[in-house]
Design a protein around this nucleic acid. Structure first.
Lengths: 201, 201
DNA sequence: GCATGTGAATAGATTCACAGCG
DNA sequence: CGCTGTGAATCTATTCACATGC
């Protein structure tokens, strides 16, 4: 809406787009403060700014990506990050063959440089896109280098010390959710089929 | 645990690993039926099977990936999919330069073949890994070809007809969550700093 | 008049706490 | 005795409904 220069939006409209109840939108926004205008709605630009501020997106977060395989490269090229204030400042890989190569405008650097990179470029967030076997070790390297937020894409559960934020992305979870609903639909269809041919209820 | 041949597990242990309350684990499992043994715990293998069954993971779900850039290639190579019953049966791209190339053991096929591919290989789930501009069109192609579950990785909101499941993965959302907590920690640290130097409370 | 902001009401999720079973 | 399974209690989220203000 901001891109389309739409000046204001109602909770009703936002609720419709998000698939939720309008009262929920208003109540949620009310926790950020009262940024709406009665009889008019919410100023799109201002609301976006306030939400960004609350989420910490108005500041710059230097990010390092460790593990530049397909996924790491995809993340390095992902346009959505820079748009939200996440600046990718380094790509790191343990494989010497990958070091020196350019990916998404950055040169891949060796893993052993990580402590220096984190310190010099003030890295706050580390993304792990390595194979599962390397993930725990990389997490420890990141934390000891001073990174305090870790996003793990490797398909394994890793541990970090208290005081460090850790989140895990499992790309197959969304597929599992789709599979659950698809199965339910298939079952409902089979049920409907039985009824169509012989059911009475 | 199944891989490590651990025979049984308690709700307490699972809760600890998942970072939740043990009663929640038990109540959740109770909705699937009573698969635990009092005084012992849950049989790891059996529990895994029951959960897989409930999620529809015991059946085979043929998947097509549309858009074989870095992300599409990463998804094509992702080991976690096949491990959960998702069989990638086709890779499709609109770019003729990419067609014929091999990625993750499959040959990339042209987008116009999509209807035939979906029909012949009984594709149930379509993954969109195209640029934002192509996503809506690809979704419509998938649906008209007969796909009834769509997973969208493109950074844009797309629409599908009622009766089709749609889920969207935004890779930057997890970063935004990390940024939110990091900001809170930074604020708390600043507060602590002020107090250390001049605060009384 | 119209849409926000929010107490009150409702619905839902989580946890407690303990009976019951292996 | 230990751990599940689950009513009851509690806590949290969502929705209603309307006073409030532009």
């Amino acid at each position: 809406m901001a891109e389309q220069r739409i000046p204001t939006v109602s909770s009703e409209r936002l609720a419709e787009l998000a698939g939720v109840n309008a009262a929920k939108v208003r109540k949620d926004f009310s926790y950020l403060g009262s940024y709406g205008t009665r009889g008019v709605g919410y100023d799109v630009e201002y609301l976006l700014f306030q939400i960004s501020k609350e989420l910490g997106l108005t500041q710059d977060w230097p990010v390092v990506i460790v593990g530049i395989g397909n996924l790491g490269a995809a993340l390095a090229n992902y346009r959505g990050f820079s748009a939200r204030g996440f600046r990718i400042v380094a790509l790191v890989d343990a494989d010497p063959a990958k070091c020196g190569k350019e990916v998404g405008g950055l040169v891949v650097e060796p893993l052993r440089e990580l402590p220096r990179i984190v310190a010099e470029r003030d890295v706050a967030i580390g993304i792990i896109a390595t194979p599962a076997a390397a993930a725990q070790e990389v997490a420890e390297l990141l934390v000891s280098a001073g990174v305090s937020s870790v996003l793990n894409f490797a398909p394994i559960v890793i541990a970090v010390p208290a005081g460090v934020s850790l989140r895990k992305v499992d790309l197959s979870i969304e597929l599992q959710i789709l599979s659950f609903y698809q199965q339910r639909r298939d079952e409902a269809a089979a049920e409907g089929g039985r009824m169509a041919f012989g059911g009475l209820t």
